[in-house]
């Protein structure tokens, strides 16, 4: 049994069948990549997992519970965090505050009215924030406005925000999109480090085959809304159907 089970999920947008009977099983503590050409339905699938979209049919079970029909914040509270294609951070807030907020959310739930205590007097939160910033090596930028960070640092910060919640499942939507090679390699190293240091399941959507084959333990290939194959990276590389549908047009 996997930690995330997607069964027979379909989603239509008007006449377009974005997802057609998708089945996906993500095993606990693995890095699972979903690849496929543009328009294959990767992002639609991800949006169905986090409550942004409601599939027309099928079920999505996380940790034994259905996520369908739940609000995004409820799904996050179940233990799913998401890294977006363009980093979604609190641009007007400092790096330190950006990391504090998810920790507050994890500890106090979806709403807590602490209107009279001082933020920095919460020793528990401050300590955990410090530790998280140290983990991603951003202590020196703690007072910087998040919007002023470089693209790579924004990505790093967003991952720190997600990881600070100790999610059971981390969803990554093209974490290296638009990055220079050096930044991409840094991100790969960061993700490897994260995986090695804790129990976490990751589900990555990625275009860059270099990233996919350096990280993934299982790969699902999606084409035109249906999964073609699911296998280990070694087998995917040689799979004729995959070559035809996808890898033929990109270099491995």
């Amino acid at each position: 049994m996997g930690i995330l089970e997607v069964n027979n999920v379909s989603k239509r947008f008007g006449g377009l069948k974005a997802l057609d009977n998708v089945n996906l099983n993500v095993m606990e503590n693995t890095v699972h990549a979903i690849i496929g050409p543009n328009g294959a339905g990767k992002s639609t699938l991800l949006n169905c997992l986090i409550g942004k979209l409601m599939p027309d049919t099928g079920s999505v079970m996380f940790d034994g519970q259905s996520v369908l029909g739940r609000k995004p914040h409820e799904i996050n509270q179940m233990g799913i965090s998401r890294v977006f294609q363009t980093p979604e951070i609190f641009g007007d807030l400092t790096v330190f505050e950006n990391v504090m907020i998810p920790i507050f959310a994890k500890r106090d739930g979806a709403f807590a009215l602490h209107a009279f205590s001082r933020v920095l007097n919460d020793a528990d939160i401050v300590m955990r924030t410090e530790a998280m910033l140290e983990d991603v090596d951003m202590q020196d930028k703690r007072h910087a406005n998040a919007a002023s960070l470089s693209r790579g640092d924004k990505r790093r910060l967003e991952m720190a925000m997600c990881l600070s919640q100790q999610p059971k499942l981390l969803l990554l939507d093209e974490p290296t999109a638009g990055m220079a090679r050096a930044d991409t390699n840094n991100t790969i190293d960061l993700l490897k480090e994260i995986k090695a240091s804790r129990d976490i399941t990751m589900c990555i959507i990625e275009h860059d085959m270099h990233v996919v084959f350096s990280l993934a333990e299982r790969i699902t290939v999606l084409a035109q809304g249906t999964p073609l194959v699911e296998d280990t990276p070694e087998n995917i590389k040689g799979h004729p159907k995959v070559r035809e549908a996808y890898l033929g047009e990109a270099q491995v």
């Binding site: 995004p72 996050n76 507050f104 709403f111 807590a112």
Partner: peptide, 30 residues
Amino acid sequence: RIFRSPFGMMLRAVKSNQQRMNYTGLNSRP
């Protein structure tokens, strides 16, 4: 006191990026 409290910080988070706030497990409505 409100400006310096966690509540005040959450309110600034609403202004800054409500989408991120919701995907961080916070319900912005209350």
